[in-house]
């Protein structure tokens, strides 16, 4: 069996223009050997999920620093499940209080990262998650 890299789609939903974090994380995932499709700023949940479908991404990463994380993560997760990407990881980062993380976890969102987290651990988390969650192919 041949081996191939993990593919991750990264984008920033909404109008928040602080994209340094997303770029640093994208870069560190590339360093970890992943193929990163970088969507950039001012995406909608719909445009992010549409890109994840066409790119057949293993994982989707959102960066939300505007405080709207509850809206964006929830909406993207719903769209992913509706559109057949329920078996892919949704992760991301921002300033996310523990309580909000718990609510989002219950909705099927993966681990979210914040200031001070080592980008290396994000790569490790994505890698472990994707390896332990093979895709469900329709029979």
């Amino acid at each position: 069996m041949s081996e191939y890299p993990i593919k991750v789609v990264i984008g920033k939903p909404g109008l928040d223009g602080h994209d340094r974090g997303a770029k640093v994380v994208a870069r560190s995932l590339v360093e970890a050997g992943m193929e990163v499709v970088y969507l950039g700023l001012r995406q909608t949940p719909e445009s992010i999920v549409a890109a994840a479908i066409d790119e057949d991404a293993d994982a989707v990463g959102l960066s939300v620093l505007s405080g709207a994380h509850m809206t964006h993560f929830k909406r993207v997760r719903e769209l992913m499940v509706d559109q057949g990407l329920g078996d892919r990881l949704l992760t991301g980062g921002g300033i996310i209080p523990t309580k909000d993380q718990e609510t989002l976890t219950a909705l099927g969102v993966g681990k979210l990262f914040g200031p001070g987290d080592d980008p290396g651990t994000i790569a490790e988390y994505i890698r472990d998650w994707v390896r332990t969650h093979p895709r469900m192919e329709a029979k």
């Binding site: 993990i6 970890a32 050997g33 895709r135 192919e137 329709a138 029979k139």
Partner: peptide
């Protein structure tokens, strides 16, 4: 050794359902 760090090896089954879709 770097390349292997993020490598996957799950294959994709060419199921009739996939082909139909």
């Amino acid at each position: 050794q770097f390349q292997k760090t993020s490598a996957l090896s799950h294959g994709i089954d060419l199921t009739p359902a996939l082909w139909k879709s």
